[in-house]
Amino acid sequence: MNRWITQLRKGLLEYLILNILNQKETYGYEIIQILKNFESMDVTESTVYPILARLNKDGLAHVRKFPSPDGPPRRYYSLTSKGKVRVADMNQYWDLLNQIIQTIRSKT
């Protein structure tokens, strides 16, 4: 059961991060704070930052650096046009999956 949840969470996390970035340009720390509101997601730095780095590498997210008076520059992530297409596809597929799950659950 635990392994199943872990696997599902890992898959979902990228989807959720893409959706957060789809709403606004933001930085990693804030993404973690948003996701930490949902305890069941069990989000930590070691899960979020590698995903952000990968999204950037894959050209789905873009990083902009803003100078900060208190330390190193803030790194803001936003979706690229490729990322916006991806999140739209993912949302569409998620709706389809949700529909399938609801249909099967209502029949059993």
Partner: peptide, 26 residues
């Protein structure tokens, strides 16, 4: 620990973590 990733990916993670530590301190 992340030496297996590409240098760009590793730099991104390290820079984000550095920012995270500063914000957590603040």
């Amino acid at each position: 620990q992340i030496s297996g990733l590409s240098p760009d990916e590793a730099d991104n993670i390290i820079d984000d973590l550095r920012g995270h530590i500063d914000l957590a301190m603040q």
